[in-house]
Simulated scan of single mutants.
Amino acid sequence: MKCSWLPGRNASPDTNYTLYYWHSNLEKIHQCEKIYTDNQYFGCSFDLTKVKDSSFEKNSVQIMVKDNAGKIRPSFKIVPLTSRVKPDPPHIKKLFFHNGNLYVQWEDPQNFISRCLSYEVEVNNSQTETLVFNVKDEAKCQNPEFERNMENTSCFMVPGVLPDTLNAVRIRVKTNEFCYEDDKLWSNWSQEMTIGKKRNSTLYITMLLIVPVIVAGAIIVLLVYLKRLKIIIFPPIPDPGKIFKEMFGDQNDDTLHWKKYDIYEKQTKEETDSVVLIENLKKASQ
């Protein structure tokens, strides 16, 4: 049994506390020796192994917490053994597939009657969502594989599980309303156990990388091929105006420019020469 409490309001931080407990199967009051601190809480745990199963539902534990200096008013409480019970997590013993169904076998927590417990089985599959099943006595499986060792064990058949993928299974347990007042305190999850085949992640990643490259290359080749095919089927039509311009347009311009330059140059020389000759004749006559 684990008990926890807050320190006194006006208590100093170095105050030491002591927890005492007693129930009907003990001859005297016992002191809890395993006191610990958890953040702002103090706590202590002790064994209840001397409580008989036949009287467990009728028993209660009387608890008192006080400080060693006697400066704080002691706290006293009677706790029924059927309230706030948290079982230990189950232990999975066996997993196997049979006729397309997954069978799970586990050990029940100690010191509990099987009819007083309810289980929850969780199956995680890489290809599907997480599957959660609530297991009761009437839902437990009946299979010859478990008949040889059914003492203190339970079994459940999980439907709709794919055997060709990796499946991770874990279980937790809580007390039910048939034997206990509080039926909402779940145990910790059991250690996970796996079954099935794991997918080759390397091959999967390689395919994801290769396929886009192949598709892109095929698209590029197809575009180049279609462009060449279009040129072969529909060749470009030549422009007649451009052809005639290249043949005659540039040559006419050059010819006219040459002719103008030549005529101008000749005219200039002839006029200059005739002027010089006239002046020379006048001087000679004088």
Rank of each mutant, 00 (worst) to 15 (best):
K2I: 03
P7A: 01
R9N: 10
N10E: 14
N10H: 12
S12C: 05
D14N: 04
D14E: 03
Y20D: 00
S24P: 02
K28N: 13
H30P: 04
H30A: 12
I35T: 03
I35Q: 02
Y36A: 00
T37R: 04
D38H: 05
Y41L: 10
D47R: 04
V51S: 05
S54N: 06
K58G: 11
K58T: 13
N59K: 05
S60Q: 13
Q62S: 13
Q62P: 04
K66H: 10
N68R: 09
N68S: 09
R73S: 14
R73H: 13
I78Y: 12
V85S: 03
K86F: 08
P87Y: 09
F96V: 02
N99A: 08
N101S: 07
Y103N: 03
Y103P: 00
D108C: 08
P109R: 06
P109D: 06
R115S: 15
L117R: 00
S118V: 12
N124W: 11
N125D: 15
Q127F: 09
Q127C: 07
L131D: 10
V135C: 01
A139T: 15
K140T: 05
Q142C: 02
N143I: 02
P144G: 00
N149P: 06
N149E: 11
E151G: 03
T153P: 00
T153D: 01
S154D: 01
G160Q: 05
G160D: 06
V161H: 07
D164I: 09
T165N: 13
V169Y: 08
I171G: 05
D182L: 04
D182N: 08
D182T: 13
Q191I: 11
T194M: 06
T202H: 08
M207P: 03
L208E: 09
P212I: 00
P212L: 00
V213Y: 01
A218P: 06
I220N: 02
V224R: 03
L226H: 02
K227N: 09
I231M: 14
P236F: 02
P236L: 03
D239Y: 01
P240C: 05
G241L: 05
E246R: 15
D250P: 06
D250C: 10
Q251W: 12
Q251E: 14
T255M: 15
T255C: 15
H257C: 14
K260I: 12
E265D: 14
E265H: 13
V276K: 09
V276I: 10
L281N: 04
K282N: 06
Q286E: 02
